[in-house]
């Protein structure tokens, strides 16, 4: 995709690009390079001497049960957030797509959580599930569930998943709705004339045509669960109880900022960067494919 008509000059475009490139270089590329560099060094406890240790930091990382645990926690967390978030949003979007009366009202209300910061979303749900005064905690106790996410790791995980899904639902909803509205009505009408009921139409026509949107949202949601949910966890459970809600990005922060383990934290950064790069490439390929047709 290139313009046929362009302007001449080299200095001007470079000057126009300069602010963006300078910020990128100083605040993105340099720190990323530093993380790479530090990941092969080890500092002594007093910060006086650093030695080159090769891949030892990575070896240490992948033999550290706490880190492997964080990997497992991240997997459970992101699968839960993605699966629940996507299915709920799809359900709501399919319902909203065919509603005539009040459609825009529903849409307006469902879009609201997008505006709420993840940290605030976390605090709202933290309050609802608060073991001593939370409404949901009381309701659960009434049906015999002893709710205390301060002590029970599984319950803490449920809490952060709920908050993360709630926050992301509007995003997924909007994209599914846009995808649904792009499906030609004639296809659905043709199927209806051939005698296919609403459920059959959904599974054989709507759902397959929606798969590009679904795939895009899948990648976005995994990225969201891996990185943006840091806020929720930091503001509520702080990774606890024990290590039950310590996801990878929370561990980078707590090992680096709180534990001051430079080499280890840098190695974790490098692993995370590799994960984001893979996710972004997958996403970009999707964008390119979309642009083609």
């Amino acid at each position: 995709m290139h313009k046929k008509v362009t302007f001449r000059g080299v200095a001007l475009p470079l000057a126009l690009l300069l602010p963006q490139l300078a910020i990128t270089a100083v605040f993105f590329l340099w720190p990323a390079g530093q993380a790479l560099y530090q990941s092969v060094l080890r500092q002594d406890p007093f910060g006086l001497r650093t030695t080159f240790v090769g891949l030892a930091n990575f070896e240490r990382l992948f033999s550290d049960p706490l880190y492997l645990n964080a990997f497992q926690v991240t997997l459970v967390f992101s699968i839960a957030v993605t699966a629940i978030g996507l299915s709920l949003a799809l359900l709501l979007a399919v319902m909203a797509d065919r509603v005539i009366k009040g459609a825009s009202g529903y849409k307006t209300l469902l879009v609201m959580p997008y505006a709420v910061a993840p940290a605030v979303a976390g605090v709202l749900w933290w309050f609802l599930f608060n073991p001593s005064i939370g409404l949901f905690a009381h309701a659960l106790r009434a049906v015999g569930v002893d709710w205390n996410h301060l002590l029970n790791g599984d319950q803490a995980m449920i809490l952060v998943v709920v908050a993360a899904v709630w926050k992301q639902i509007s995003y997924n909803f909007l994209f599914f709705l846009a995808g649904l509205q792009a499906i030609p009505k004639s296809l659905i009408e043709a199927a209806a004339i051939d005698g296919a009921g609403p459920f059959k139409r959904f599974w054989t026509i709507v759902f397959p045509l929606l798969s590009p949107t679904a795939f895009f949202l899948l990648v976005v949601n995994v990225t969201y669960a891996f990185f943006d949910t840091f806020q929720i966890i930091h503001a509520t459970t702080s990774g606890g109880p024990g290590q039950a809600t310590t996801i990878l990005v929370y561990k980078v922060y707590s090992d680096g900022f709180v534990g001051l383990d430079l080499g280890g934290s840098a190695a974790q950064s490098v692993v995370l960067m590799a994960i984001v790069i893979v996710l972004t490439i997958v996403q970009f390929r999707w964008i390119e494919r979309r642009v083609q047709y």
Binding site: F27, Q34, A35, V252, F257, M273, V276
Partner: peptide
């Protein structure tokens, strides 16, 4: 591509070195 790369490096991921800068 350099600009596009910034998408791949959320602040949470490179928190410590960015803080140093």
């Amino acid at each position: 591509w350099i600009i596009f790369l910034t998408l791949m490096l959320p602040v949470e991921v490179r928190i410590l070195p960015t803080f140093e800068v």
